[in-house]
């Protein structure tokens, strides 16, 4: 059974940040809030450190969606983080279009260090949306 889920399930790669959004994702687990188990998280120091080429590689490898759990205004490095992360998204969207990948497959949202519930909501919605698009 797991084999079938493995092939059909929507796979999402999340870039989280070690000090801000990753604790929120941990908190979601701690509170037993459930989100799809095909969501995989790679933590980075800051959401402004995500290279577009990593995102593209993810799509190439077969992920259905990429989500950036951004530091937002909580970033401990710089206030410009929000802006910079948005720039990365915008830039990647262009590259995705060039490759014919729907921009809807890349999303970002600010996830604060206790935003467990918002994270779970984002994941559930994102996966649902991706499923719909995949079927259609």
């Amino acid at each position: 059974m797991s084999e079938t889920t493995k092939n059909t399930a929507i796979k999402v790669l999340v870039f989280s940040t070690e000090k801000i959004s990753d604790p929120a994702i941990d908190l979601a687990g701690l509170l037993k809030l459930h989100y799809p188990p095909t969501v995989y998280v790679i933590p980075l120091p800051c959401s402004s450190a995500v290279k577009p080429k990593w995102i593209l590689r993810a799509f190439e490898k077969g992920y259905d969606g990429v989500f950036i759990a951004a530091d937002g205004t909580d970033c401990s490095f710089s206030e410009s983080c929000v802006e910079k992360t948005s720039d990365i998204i915008a830039q990647t969207h262009i590259l995705m279009k060039e490759k014919g990948i729907s921009p809807a497959k890349l999303k970002m949202a600010a996830i604060c260090s206790v935003c467990a519930e918002p994270f779970v909501k984002h994941m559930n919605n994102f996966v649902e949306e991706l499923t719909r698009n995949k079927i259609n």
């Binding site: 889920t5 994702i25 941990d26 908190l27 687990g29 459930h34 989100y35 188990p37 995989y40 998280v41």
Partner: peptide
């Protein structure tokens, strides 16, 4: 991290949680 982002987050779907843990 197979606890906070594994067993606990996916305690509702043990089989899939195991799969995820393997990938992780």
């Amino acid at each position: 991290n197979i606890r906070e982002q594994g067993s606990w987050a996916h305690s509702d779907t043990p089989a899939a949680a195991t799969e995820k843990a393997i990938q992780l």
